Lab assay of single mutants.
Amino acid sequence: QEEEKEIKRLAKKFNASEEEARRAWKKAGGDPETAEKILKKKG
């Protein structure tokens, strides 16, 4: 599933848990760029 792959990639890229990545993904409405910004800010 595309979403799961994206979440795993985000978690790995930002050294975050999949739970954090999933939360960022949901907050971003499934937009990878926005999710990255959220995780970057958090990191």
Rank of each mutant, 00 (worst) to 15 (best):
Q1K: 11
Q1S: 13
Q1R: 11
Q1W: 14
Q1D: 15
E2G: 10
E2P: 09
E2L: 11
E2D: 14
E2I: 10
E2Y: 12
E2F: 13
E2T: 10
E2V: 09
E3W: 09
E3S: 10
E3I: 11
E3C: 13
E3K: 06
E3Q: 09
E4Y: 09
E4G: 06
E4R: 07
E4F: 06
E4P: 03
E4L: 09
E4C: 10
E4W: 09
K5C: 11
K5S: 12
K5N: 13
K5R: 14
K5V: 12
K5E: 14
K5Y: 13
E6F: 11
E6D: 05
E6N: 08
E6A: 12
E6Q: 12
E6M: 13
E6G: 05
E6H: 11
E6R: 06
I7V: 07
I7H: 02
I7P: 01
K8E: 08
K8I: 10
K8T: 08
K8S: 08
K8N: 07
K8P: 02
R9F: 04
R9G: 04
R9M: 06
R9N: 06
R9A: 09
L10Y: 01
L10G: 00
L10K: 00
L10N: 00
L10H: 00
L10C: 01
A11I: 09
A11D: 01
A11Y: 02
A11N: 01
A11F: 01
A11V: 07
A11G: 03
A11R: 05
A11M: 15
K12M: 10
K12C: 12
K12A: 12
K12P: 01
K13N: 05
K13S: 05
K13C: 08
K13F: 05
K13W: 04
F14L: 06
F14H: 08
F14R: 01
F14T: 04
F14K: 01
F14A: 04
F14G: 02
N15C: 13
N15R: 08
N15A: 08
N15H: 13
N15I: 03
N15P: 01
A16W: 04
A16E: 06
A16Y: 05
A16F: 07
A16G: 02
A16D: 02
A16N: 03
A16S: 09
A16I: 15
S17F: 03
S17H: 03
S17P: 07
S17E: 03
S17M: 04
S17A: 05
E18S: 04
E18H: 08
E18L: 15
E18R: 04
E18D: 07
E18G: 03
E18K: 05
E19F: 05
E19G: 06
E19N: 07
E19Y: 06
E19S: 07
E19V: 06
E19K: 05
E19Q: 09
E20M: 06
E20W: 04
E20S: 07
E20D: 10
E20L: 07
E20I: 05
E20F: 03
E20A: 09
E20P: 00
E20Y: 03
A21T: 07
A21P: 00
A21G: 02
A21I: 07
R22G: 03
R22V: 03
R22D: 04
R22A: 07
R22I: 05
R23G: 07
R23V: 08
R23Q: 13
R23N: 14
R23E: 15
R23A: 15
A24W: 01
A24D: 01
A24L: 02
W25T: 04
W25N: 03
W25F: 12
W25E: 03
W25M: 14
W25K: 03
K26N: 13
K26V: 14
K26D: 15
K26E: 15
K26F: 11
K26H: 14
K27L: 15
K27C: 15
K27I: 13
K27G: 07
A28T: 02
A28W: 00
A28G: 05
A28Y: 01
A28I: 00
G29H: 09
G29R: 09
G29L: 09
G29I: 04
G29V: 05
G29D: 08
G29T: 03
G29Q: 11
G29A: 09
G30W: 02
G30D: 02
G30N: 04
G30T: 02
G30E: 03
G30P: 01
G30Y: 04
G30R: 04
D31E: 05
D31S: 07
D31A: 04
D31M: 03
D31Q: 05
D31F: 04
D31I: 10
P32N: 06
P32G: 05
P32S: 11
P32F: 12
E33L: 13
E33W: 08
E33D: 11
E33T: 10
E33R: 10
T34R: 15
T34N: 07
T34Q: 14
T34G: 10
A35R: 01
A35I: 06
A35Q: 01
A35E: 00
A35G: 00
A35L: 03
E36M: 07
E36T: 05
E36I: 06
E36K: 05
E36Q: 05
E36G: 08
E36Y: 03
E36H: 04
K37P: 01
K37L: 11
K37N: 13
K37T: 09
K37D: 10
K37Q: 12
K37M: 11
K37I: 11
I38G: 02
I38F: 07
I38S: 02
I38Y: 09
I38L: 09
I38D: 03
I38P: 00
I38R: 02
L39Q: 00
L39V: 02
L39T: 01
L39A: 01
L39D: 00
L39F: 03
K40F: 09
K40G: 14
K40R: 14
K40C: 09
K40M: 15
K40H: 12
K40P: 02
K41W: 11
K41Q: 14
K41H: 14
K41S: 14
K42H: 12
K42Y: 12
K42E: 14
K42W: 15
G43Y: 15
G43Q: 14
G43T: 13
G43F: 15
G43H: 14
G43R: 14
